[in-house]
Simulated scan of single mutants.
Amino acid sequence: MLNCGSGFPCATRTSWTHDNPGRKFIACKFYNHETGQRGCNTFDWVDVDEPTNWQRDVINMLLAEKQRIATDNHILRSRLVCAENEKSRLSKEM
């Protein structure tokens, strides 16, 4: 296993950025994907070839669709809770 500049084994991760969705890379295990901060500057793509524009577009469309479905699911669950509460309220009034 490759060690980073900090002397620790590198971590293999997956990029989910808009420009590089689904691409694997190795980096310092102290790399924080939320802040972009790294323990050291060790970074390299695992795949040799960049994805094509078509592949990038398809992956990004699928990720957006996944997010839309998750949002729709959340809205439907909220509506269900509201309907159940209304049913309970109406039952108590009768």
Rank of each mutant, 00 (worst) to 15 (best):
V81H: 13
R68C: 07
S88Q: 07
A70Y: 00
K87I: 08
H33T: 06
A27M: 01
S15W: 00
Y31M: 01
N41E: 12
N60S: 05
F30A: 10
T17Q: 03
P21L: 00
P9Q: 02
E86S: 11
G39F: 03
V48M: 07
T35D: 05
H18R: 12
L63H: 07
M94D: 11
S6I: 03
N20R: 12
F25N: 01
C28W: 01
E34R: 12
F30N: 11
K29C: 11
W16F: 09
H18M: 14
T12F: 00
I69M: 12
C28G: 02
E65R: 14
M61D: 15
A64E: 08
E50W: 06
N32H: 07
N60W: 03
R56E: 05
E86V: 08
L90C: 08
K66N: 06
V46E: 04
E34V: 07
A11M: 06
M1K: 07
I75K: 12
L2I: 09
L63Q: 08
V46Y: 04
E93L: 14
F8S: 13
R38F: 08
N3S: 10
E86H: 07
I59Y: 02
N20T: 12
D47M: 04
W45H: 03
F43R: 01
N60K: 02
E84K: 15
S6N: 11
T35E: 03
R23V: 07
S6V: 02
G5Y: 08
Y31C: 01
V48N: 09
I69T: 09
Q55N: 06
R79M: 13
I59T: 13
L62F: 04
W54L: 14
D19V: 13
R68S: 09
N20W: 12
G7P: 00
N20E: 12
K24D: 08
N85W: 03
N53V: 08
R89K: 14
C4S: 01
P9W: 02
M94C: 14
C10Q: 05
M1T: 06
K87P: 00
N53R: 11
A64S: 06
G39P: 00
G39V: 01
Q37R: 11
S91M: 14
N53T: 14
D49V: 09
N3T: 15
F30I: 00
E84Q: 15
S78T: 14
N53H: 09
E34Y: 08
D57M: 09
E93Q: 13
R38G: 11
F43W: 10
M61P: 00
T35M: 03
I75N: 06
W16N: 11
C40D: 03
C4K: 02
R23M: 12
W16T: 07
N41M: 07
G39I: 02
C28K: 04
G5I: 05
I75Q: 10
L90R: 11
S91G: 05
E34C: 07
Q67D: 14
T12E: 15
G7N: 05
G36Y: 03
L90G: 02
Q55K: 11
R38Q: 14
F43S: 03
R38K: 13
Q37I: 08
T71G: 02
L76F: 12
L62G: 05
P51T: 03
Y31L: 08
L76W: 10
K29L: 06
G39C: 04
W54S: 13
H74F: 09
R38N: 10
L80P: 05
D57N: 15
F43C: 04
A70K: 09
L62E: 11
S91F: 14
T14L: 01
R77T: 09
K87E: 10
